[in-house]
């Protein structure tokens, strides 16, 4: 449905720097995201994942550098991006059903009081169905569980047919079964609707089966590429600024610091002896 060419990368970040109150949060960040690919944005608490999303959306203050979508600078109201923030709180008394929230994703930005066309109602049904949310479509969003809300939010951001879906820690607070379900759902949707996904998480392991590329944030720096290119001792050691090993056990990846740190407990910027 896009008029743009699909040969180059969908999104490109070039030389992005963010510093707040003289503190560098992100330094010289470069990476790109390709059409229809699943990219994991991996980093520990405070690494700068949310900040990076805000940069991509053009709502982060004190950000320098370029973010190009289809090779062009990002307009603020860019319709090719869908976004689900890390924390979305809904009051249980809010008179908004799951389907109303999904519909707002399609026409919530429109002024004027037109009747919703039948096509919109159909699109809402389709999206609710795609995320397996039809069963609770008529319940208030505030009364849904975390995993149910996550599905509704995904449907909400998909209905505008974005080319890139930004999901900030959608797997936090979900039980392992729901984590698998949401990942499978996102993978399915991304292939079917050909939408690229950038999903942030602390843990890369649940994403390994579906992840095409990884953007690894630590220490204010970013390493990106395929999982095999990035999750290597030399790349991650350079990123963390000290030596780490990458262990593969039973299909899981563990990033471990080679020597146990002595003295004060490790700060946020350095991995504890097991990060992944």
């Amino acid at each position: 449905m896009s008029v743009h060419d699909t040969t180059g990368p969908l999104l490109e970040a070039r030389g992005v720097n963010v510093s707040v109150d003289g503190r560098d949060i992100l330094r010289d960040v470069n990476f790109s995201i390709n059409h229809g690919e699943f990219t994991g944005l991996i980093g520990s608490n405070g690494a700068g994942k949310t900040t990076l999303f805000r940069v991509i959306l053009g709502i982060q203050e004190h950000a320098v550098g370029e973010v190009l979508v289809h090779g062009e600078p990002l307009a603020r109201a860019n319709r090719s991006l869908g976004y689900v923030p890390q924390k979305v709180l809904f009051d249980p008394d809010l008179p908004i059903r799951a389907r109303d929230l999904v519909a707002l994703g399609a026409d919530g930005h429109r002024y004027g009081l037109r009747r919703r066309p039948r096509a919109l109602h159909e699109a809402v049904e389709e999206m609710l169905d795609a995320v397996d949310a039809s069963a609770f479509a008529d319940r208030r969003v505030g009364g849904l569980s975390g995993g149910e809300q996550q599905r509704v939010l995904i449907a909400h951001s998909l209905i505008s047919r974005p080319e890139l879906l930004l999901l900030d820690e959608p797997l936090a607070n979900l039980d392992p079964g729901s984590v698998q379900e949401i990942i499978a759902l996102l993978h399915r949707v991304s292939k079917r609707q050909r939408v690229a996904i950038l999903l942030s998480a602390h843990e890369m392991n649940p994403l390994l089966p579906v992840m095409d590329r990884i953007v690894y944030v630590a220490n204010g720096h970013v390493a990106s590429g395929t999982t095999d290119e990035v999750v290597r001792p030399n790349v991650l050691s350079a990123l963390y600024g000290h030596h780490v090993d990458v262990l593969r056990v039973h299909g899981r990846v563990l990033v471990v610091a080679t020597a146990l740190p002595v003295g004060p407990p490790p700060s946020d910027e350095h991995p504890e002896f097991v990060v992944e």
């Binding site: 923030p85 979305v88 930005h109």
Partner: peptide, 17 residues
């Protein structure tokens, strides 16, 4: 609609432009 949207989920509304 924009008023409803910003009242319900301001962050989502901002991201929608």
């Amino acid at each position: 609609r924009p008023l409803l949207f910003t009242s319900v989920a301001p962050e989502l509304a901002r991201a929608r432009g």
